[in-house]
Write a protein that binds this DNA or RNA. Sequence first.
DNA 1: ATTAGGG
DNA 2: CCCTAAT
Length: 690
Amino acid sequence: MVLQKRLDYGFNGYQVPVTPKASRSARKRRAVRKMVEDNAMGAFDLLATVAGKLLLEGESSPASSHTSIGKDQCAGIKENYLAGDKTLKAEPCDRGSSDRIPLVSEYKSTGQNLSSCSKASPVHQIESHSVMTTSDCSERFVSDMLASGKCKNELGSLTGKIEAGYSGNRESGECKLDNEVKVLVKDETNKSGEVVTSTGPDMCSFQDPVVWEGEPPPLLSSDSSTKVPMYVDHIPQRSFPASRDDVKLVGRDDDENFFGCTHPSTAMKYSRPAPSRIGDRRIRKILASKYWKVAPKSKDETHSNSCKWLPRTKRIYRDMKPNYHNRKNCYKRQRSQMNMPFKKRRLFDRSTVPNPDQGISREGFFDLRGKGTKGNASASCSKMQATGMSSSVGGQHSSFQSRNSHVKLRIKSFRVPELFIEIPETATVGSLKKTVMEAVTAVLGGGLCVGVLLQGKKVRDDNKTLLQTGISQDDHLDSVGFSLEPNPSRTPPPLCSDGSPSMLPCDDVKPLTRYQPGPTGEPLPEPHLASFGSYMESDHDSAPSPTEMSAEKSTTDSKALVAVPDMSVDALAVVPGNRKSRRFDIGQRRIRRPFSVTEVEALVQAVEKLGTGRWRDVKLRAFDSAKHRTYVDLKDKWKTLVHTARISPQQRRGEPVPQELLDRVLTAHAYWSQQQAKQQLKQPETCVLV
DNA sequence: ATTAGGG
DNA sequence: CCCTAAT
């Protein structure tokens, strides 16, 4: 059975954690991994939650998958942040449907905002609650929002409220629900934070929770947005353009200090009517059970138990819980961890992680979504999006007189394209979840690149300035878009949007494929491998510009971004359009890509000729075009092949490797082992001689 | 950067 | 597949 589903995420606001500059040193990168994970966790949590039932509730590893997503997602956001400006936001996707379902939304400032209307309303409560608690970390927010059973129960009503509010707004004709993600930059000092944002006339509710340590930022007043307490320790002295409708965030650029925490906010929209621009921001119901067929259990690889190479996320999460500790401590810990061995660090993380998740009700959100989306699921379901990772950047653009040459961009939303999943009817719901999660993780996790579109055309030259490309021009602001594109090196084949039709149907019921790896997977020596390799071409590490990625169809739905002139003139300079895509892969575990028989064949052949111990050469010889197969991978594969060949066929798993090949493996292995032994004996002599 | 081996 | 250690 093949399940196809496009996932749309609508997230409401989280502060994107940023990690220190990725160092070329893999080591350093690993070092920050932990940090990233910690920070990303919260954001992702929210994201994942919003995403719907993707979460692996209970059973296996709930949080597991999100982490990875969060990491990259966040990385991506940061990417945008760096590339664009300090103000990036993401909003729920538009679906062209009339109903929009805000998750934790923001409302028009027109006084329609719910919170102001009913202080006693659940919404209000929740928001307040969140605001208050968020004083810690984004994670906190999420947990708070979802955790308490109370919240859970209230969500239902929240939904109602939201809808009501929404409709009301619609009538007014200018109401927009705007869920956005805010990127906040926090200062290392961590003293007081807050930020930004809009403040509606009646945001009293928000005020309370807000605790200003020190003097309130000067910018608050003029804006019509909601004030939200943030973890921003330091707020830049500069002020925001008064007319800005959205929340802005300010912060320092230094990567090293960039240590944001996500944070949702309930901002109100500015009253300026700008309906068309935004379009429907409906959050699509994601995994409506209705549309997902679930089948009875079947054990298999789904339960990664059998998989020795359990993805890190799983491994970690098995005993790790989201980290919802206060930011300060968070920071401290991270810091302290910097000095300990990675291994130890990991353990440390696990043990220290509190256990916040308890009682969290993800259902709440889900239900909310479900209700809101009403019968649109089917529509959206069938709606295929040819574009791979299309993203919609939307919003209105405001023409601010720029005092300086800065451009502010706001990304309204990013959409995750279809995922094709093939899973036996006998699979369990749990395995389905895992599978989906894996697929999602794979996409968001490591396979994304950001593309920049201008008037529908991709801007490939990363070195051009915004000015040169025209992105900074007011009249072009509407046509600037960003797209999330598969990062060849990491994107799991299955995800390629429209891509190869081969992956769609897949009638042959395979044992239990993850998510139908690639074009029914046959990367191979000559032709296949080559093509495969080319497909996976650019490697993250070398992938210079996201924009270079191929993305046939530029996002049609990419809308305008808000460009807001800003002061920090150097920001852009700091983000020279080259190779920062590296950030995407920080701490991201590679997706699992089982070797196909063809690949095995190629490997065996190469090893027969070159022998073991020359993996570099093997790689060059047989897998040169397969960028995702490193010599280490090949070595590992050989190792497993040898093992596989030695065990009984019954014990083997995965795609069966022809016995013939296994025999060759043993033969070759024996031969080369012998050769190696001989060398060993000779070696001493030569040494002595020399 | 490679290789080797444990996890 | 990851992580280290040793080259």
